[in-house]
Design a protein around this nucleic acid. Structure first.
Length: 218
DNA sequence: TAGAGGATTGAT
DNA sequence: TCAATCCTCTAC
């Protein structure tokens, strides 16, 4: 495959991004107070799932940040419901909910307990378990198996049964491959599908890798 | 308890 | 452009 990231000025192949001794992200990564910074920092990290000895993973190439302080968030104004309760958990918890009655959305809860913030993972660049992901996603075009929040959750086998589980366990986690994404490769723009949020819909809290072919909306 | 709407997707 | 599909939340 001929796709490369620009990492600190040097070209590094996408496969080699994942080869160095990867380190599972710790609670301290997720429990920082700026959710927009965490959403940015998650770009280039590797989301991994391992169910029934089937390992699937992909480099995170698109994210969105959500906070209880703004109207785009389910937990806006500290709204506690059966669904949003997970967002009030400690950083490093999975928040998975159903959208449009069909799609599972995978989020990473951030900040301290009772500070409802989360990062929606919107797109991945597949790395491992391609065959498993294509089977789960039922798509033939490889570039489309993880190019959207509903699709990537399906490809990695994540559904609402994982809501409230920790990312520090051995089923679903995020790895730091040791590479750093150059800041000029990151684009910050407004989030998708939250017109109802008024001015908050304009917040530049959607982050993606510039010119990356795997993002949800090129 | 009923009704409206949704952090999307794929087919047409 | 539009339907699928059902959970979540709000109003009564």
């Amino acid at each position: 495959m001929g796709f490369y990231y620009l990492v600190e000025g040097a070209k590094v192949s996408r496969l080699s991004c994942h080869k160095p001794a990867a380190v599972k992200l710790k609670e301290s990564f997720y429990q920082r107070s700026r959710v927009d910074n965490i959403a940015r920092d998650l770009l280039g990290k590797v989301l991994v799932s391992r169910f029934n000895n089937m390992l699937t993973s992909g480099v995170i190439v698109e994210t969105e940040a959500y906070s209880y302080k703004e109207k785009g968030c389910h937990a806006y104004n500290n709204l506690r419901t059966a669904r949003t309760e997970t967002m009030f958990d400690q950083g490093g918890t999975m928040y998975v909910y159903l959208c449009y009655g069909i799609h599972n959305m995978f989020n990473v809860v951030t900040n301290k307990k009772d500070k409802a913030e989360a990062v929606l993972i919107r797109a991945l660049e597949p790395v491992e378990g391609m065959d498993v992901m294509m089977k789960r996603a039922s798509v033939k075009n490889i570039h489309r198996i993880t190019s959207g929040p509903g699709k990537l959750a399906k490809a990695l086998g994540i559904d609402r049964t994982w809501d409230g589980e920790l990312l520090t366990g051995d089923d679903v986690w995020v790895e730091d491959s040791g590479t750093k994404i150059a800041s000029n490769k990151i684009v910050a723009t407004s989030r998708v599908g939250i017109d109802y949020a008024g001015d908050d819909a304009l917040l530049p809290w959607r982050f993606y890798l510039k010119d990356n072919p795997w993002i949800s909306r090129p």
